[in-house]
């Protein structure tokens, strides 16, 4: 059984079929990348998994459980964490507080206990902070720890968002264009982090990425998407040399193209 299974999912926005009868599955422990031209439906697949959108038809299951039975806020409980293409951080909070929100799914204390800040709340807080400090060390975020998000450069925000997802202790990490807008050096860091996340933390990664260098560098398997449907699936090399994929990219020259 695969960790994540998308089975013939379809989603329409009015006349646009954003995801068209799409099936794929992600195995535990792999890095799986989705590539495709702009508007191919990559982010929409993520939003289906996050349960922000209700599929028109099809099934999505995670670790054998039907994801469609869950509300969007109950997806995190299964150990699915994500980042957003346009960065959705809590702008008027510090980096530390943002990462701590990542721990929300592990909240065990009630409102009353928290108002009184009972010893149990303190114990739990300490535990959350231990995890978060590990993430801060891992991602070299120490200099920004107590800074407000609103004043941080774009590249740092991207890393903070990755950190917030990691802080939740995920089984599956969804990364929507983790390297977009990053410098060459920052992209290199991102590549190492993704490698470490998979190898050291044993987290499965599903990512959308345009940078084919990064995709080829870290992913085990690649899915090429166009107009919401599967074009090709396989190793990075197989997909890059697939005639249908090359045609799709040449048909959309505005996109960076396959490197």
């Amino acid at each position: 059984m695969s960790l994540l299974e998308i089975d013939r999912a379809t989603l329409k926005f009015g006349g646009v079929t954003a995801v068209n009868d799409l099936s794929f599955s992600v195995e535990e422990g792999e890095v799986y990348a989705i590539v495709g031209p702009n508007g191919a439906g990559k982010s929409t697949v993520f939003n289906l998994i996050s349960r922000f959108y209700e599929p028109y038809s099809g099934r999505i299951s995670f670790a054998g459980e039907n994801l469609l039975d869950r509300r969007a806020d109950a997806v995190a409980d299964l150990g699915i964490a994500r980042t957003f293409q346009n960065i959705e951080l809590f702008d008027h909070a510090t980096v530390l507080q943002n990462l701590l929100v990542g721990r929300h799914r592990h909240r065990r204390t009630s409102m009353i206990e928290e108002l009184l800040f009972t010893p149990r709340v303190r114990r739990e807080e300490r535990r959350h902070r231990e995890v978060v400090e590990e993430v801060i060390d891992f991602l070299d975020l120490q200099p920004y720890r107590d800074k407000m998000i609103a004043g941080l450069p774009y590249g740092v925000r991207k890393v903070v968002e990755l950190g917030r997802a990691l802080a939740s202790g995920p089984r599956l990490l969804l990364l929507d264009e983790p390297a977009s807008g990053l410098s060459v050096e920052e992209t290199q860091d991102m590549r190492w982090w993704i490698d470490d996340i998979r190898k050291q933390m044993g987290v499965t990664v599903l990512m959308v990425e345009h940078d084919m260098g990064l995709v080829a560098g870290v992913s085990d398997r690649v899915l090429a998407l166009a107009d919401g449907a599967k074009l090709a699936e396989g190793t990075p090399v197989e997909v890059q040399s697939d005639p249908a994929v090359i045609a799709a990219y040449l048909g959309a020259p505005a996109d960076g193209g396959v490197a």
Binding site: A76, E88, H104
Partner: peptide, 22 residues
């Protein structure tokens, strides 16, 4: 405590608050 941070999360981004399980 967690609830106070959840408040701020809801204020700043309902979408990502939801994705974090709020």
């Amino acid at each position: 405590a967690p609830l106070g941070r959840a408040f701020a999360a809801v204020r700043d981004s309902e979408v990502s608050a939801t994705a974090m399980g709020v």
